[in-house]
Simulated assay, not measured.
Amino acid sequence: MFEDVIGSMRRDFDIKPKDVMNLHPLVLAYIGDAVYEVYIRTMLIINKRTNVNMLHKMSVKYVNAKAQSDIVHRISDMLTQDEQDVVRRGRNAKSATAPKHAEITDYRYSTGYEALIGYLYLTNSTDRLMEILELSVEEE
């Protein structure tokens, strides 16, 4: 279901994979953050039928720098070389803002994770995107 929506939405825009690699990693993270947030919200409303306040509190468990940093460390061995490069570029990107509620290291790895999600979304790698998203929410 989610992959159909994401795939359909992405197909409406024409961007070539080589052009995606030329985007600044913070641009990839920008779109990746949105895709990940929609995935988490969708998962929660389907699996946890509750009020909006509780849904928000549950989503924070997944959508924060520490959680996303932990995901990158947990799945790094499963990433292709290109995916690892995207994470590295995102992690090393210089941001004009500093994290308010996170360690700088977690914030950087989180940016790398979001860049990966953005990269997979923009390259229309829907199957791989879904695989990474599903791995991301697996309990250890």
Rank of each mutant, 00 (worst) to 15 (best):
E3M: 09
E3S: 15
V5C: 01
V5H: 07
I6G: 00
I6K: 01
G7S: 05
G7R: 06
S8L: 04
S8D: 10
M9S: 10
M9G: 06
R11Y: 07
R11V: 02
F13T: 00
D14M: 06
D14L: 10
D14I: 09
D14C: 05
K16C: 03
P17T: 04
P17Q: 04
K18T: 13
K18Y: 11
K18G: 00
K18R: 12
K18W: 11
D19Q: 08
V20C: 08
M21P: 00
M21S: 10
N22H: 09
N22Q: 12
N22V: 01
L23P: 11
L23K: 13
L23Y: 13
H24S: 14
H24Y: 13
H24F: 08
L26Y: 03
V27G: 04
L28R: 01
L28Y: 05
A29Y: 07
A29E: 07
Y30V: 07
I31F: 06
A34K: 15
A34L: 09
A34D: 10
Y36D: 02
I40M: 03
R41V: 06
R41C: 07
T42W: 11
M43S: 14
M43T: 14
L44C: 12
I45M: 11
I45G: 00
I46V: 15
K48G: 07
T50G: 10
T50H: 09
N51P: 12
V52G: 11
M54E: 15
H56E: 12
H56N: 15
M58E: 13
M58H: 00
S59G: 07
S59F: 03
S59K: 08
S59C: 03
V60S: 13
V60T: 13
K61S: 08
V63P: 03
N64S: 06
N64K: 02
K66Q: 15
A67N: 15
Q68R: 15
Q68T: 12
D70L: 13
D70M: 12
V72K: 02
R74E: 13
S76E: 14
S76H: 11
S76I: 15
D82F: 04
D82C: 03
Q84W: 10
D85I: 05
R88C: 07
R88F: 13
R89N: 13
R89I: 02
G90D: 08
R91H: 14
K94P: 02
K94G: 05
S95K: 04
A98F: 11
A98L: 13
P99V: 05
P99M: 01
K100I: 06
K100F: 05
H101W: 12
E103R: 12
E103N: 13
T105C: 00
D106T: 02
D106E: 05
Y107Q: 00
R108N: 12
R108S: 09
Y109W: 12
S110H: 06
T111D: 03
T111F: 02
G112L: 05
G112K: 05
E114V: 00
A115C: 10
L116I: 02
I117N: 00
G118R: 02
Y119A: 01
L120M: 09
Y121W: 09
T123L: 01
T123I: 04
N124G: 06
N124I: 01
S125A: 15
D127H: 14
L129N: 03
M130T: 15
M130S: 11
I132C: 05
I132S: 00
I132Q: 02
S136R: 07
S136D: 09
V137Y: 13
E138N: 06
E139M: 12
E140P: 12
